[in-house]
Design a protein around this nucleic acid. Structure first.
Lengths: 217, 217
DNA sequence: AAAATAGTGTCTGTGAGACAGTATCGC
DNA sequence: GCGATACTGTCTCACAGACACTATTTT
């Protein structure tokens, strides 16, 4: 059929969560060689008997290795080469997954700041950096950052989330205008948050799928 | 090492060229099963002894199967699943490659309109459609469309290229303003095109690598 | 001169940023 | 009342589209 050996093919998942006002990435400790004992992104092999595609593999990894059911998962890119894995020529289909709301207390992962996760196995530091860059690019024109929030949220929380994802402060009045006109969110009638000062209107995502805006948020 | 069989991993290339005022895609006829005799994207297996990564594989395919040396090549995505190849669970790392200038006369490929390439093997129609979508998205904010042009070009040719890629007409005055301010191109001093009417200033790309603009072109 | 393409100047509407001002809570 | 957070109204500047206008070539 073919006269070239197939490369090692894996799926790695950059699990991201918004916690303590900063993007955090979920890491696991490797229990086998190569890089045994070092921190790494959760990942695994494709189960050709059950996985519908590599995104299904990523979802399975998030569920089985991290206990996370409710994530927004998307493919980032495939990174490959002869040197990145000591076992030989390898390719990894990298996905990123945004955790909705707070991370469960019993999460088996270690959560580290995504901007400075510490030294990791393989080229995983680079994969996280590439994910953050993609997130910044896509987040400025879509409802992607809202996938970090629980079902109901205030516009102040939403703006703060966009600021964390985009890495820059946003003008409050302009943000409200643009979000209003984007149609990304719908107010929950009568529901107000119980904040420390004046209560704020609660909103939910109009559509929980990825939506784009023709304007920059 | 692992108890799951490795999927079939290939690299497919969506070769694109601007010809006769429309985007054309380069196709090859399959000489073996599956889909023997049908039209398909050029592709192949990774040569783990020589290829530095999957983009190197794509460049090698463009060179050996299409005779194209001077292409801009970039990864699109990895498409995978149990059904897309009758031989079993497979993944293909799709790249797209933009051919600079005219296609050589002796190109062994058949060139078909990218918007309507006819029925193709595997899921290759979908891969072409996804490439066109990516091209539209990326082309509106970058110098990507200019990679279809030869080294020297006029602003009218550049605008026409952007219009082909974006699929919509562009305002001439606004286009000149935006291109001017983007810094994407540099005038070639004294050189003028020998067009049918008034000669036009010739330009070249300031930087032949992919550059982004903060404004929409 | 007419046709054709290249290139410029100017008006206008839209939208983003800035920021002051108002509203509603806890204390 | 005061502080804090939520929200709104308005001004201004930047920029995109429209389009008329000028410029330079071939025929």
């Amino acid at each position: 059929m073919h006269d070239h050996p197939l490369p090692i093919l894996t799926v790695d998942v950059v699990l991201l969560s918004l916690r303590d006002g900063a993007l955090q990435v979920g890491l696991t400790r490797r229990d086998k060689d190569p890089f045994q004992g070092e921190w790494a992104l959760p990942g695994g092999y494709i189960h050709t008997d059950t996985d519908a595609d590599t995104t299904a593999t990523a979802r399975r990894v998030a569920r089985d290795k991290a206990g996370l059911q409710d994530v927004y998962c998307e493919q980032l890119a495939t990174i490959s080469g002869p040197e990145r894995d000591p076992r030989g020529w390898s390719a990894t289909v990298v996905h990123y997954a945004l955790v909705r709301g707070a991370v469960p207390k019993d999460s088996p992962l270690k959560w580290r700041p995504a901007a400075a996760p510490g030294p990791l196995a393989f080229d995983h530091n680079g994969l996280i950096a590439a994910t953050l860059e993609r997130l910044r690019g896509k987040g400025a024109y879509s409802n992607l950052p809202a996938f970090f929030l629980p079902a109901a949220f205030t516009l102040s929380e939403l703006r703060s989330t966009y600021e964390q994802v985009l890495g820059q402060p946003l003008n409050d009045a302009a943000f409200r205008r643009k979000i209003e006109e984007s149609g990304f969110v719908t107010p929950l009638p009568g529901q107000l948050s119980k904040a420390t000062a004046r209560p704020a209107q609660l909103y939910e995502l109009t559509d929980t799928s990825l939506k784009f805006s023709h304007r920059r948020i």
